[in-house]
Amino acid sequence: MEPNFLQDLVAKFDIGEYPADEQHAILDEMSQIIMESVLTRAIPLLPVEAAIEYDKMLAADADITEIFTFLQMSVPGFDEIVAEEVATLEKMLKLAKG
């Protein structure tokens, strides 16, 4: 990731006041939470057939990236879910910021 991108993330989530190390830690943590939120919302929306396929992928020890790509392909409105989850976290952090 380019430094510009990092700056964007820091600006977006308004965490510029923290030292660089903490910024990185916060971003990592937020990434984890977004990922967790997206998976929690997206997986229940898998259509039945896709869910069967998905279970097979899990059993076959598929790579997480493959899994994620599959979800993107199979879950209707996946983009919106991702967008909403990022936006929600952003909103919450802004709320906390006051």
Partner: peptide, 12 residues
Amino acid sequence: KAKNTAGNVMLY
């Protein structure tokens, strides 16, 4: 599975 993947990689 995702636990072993760094969050930033997933986000990116």
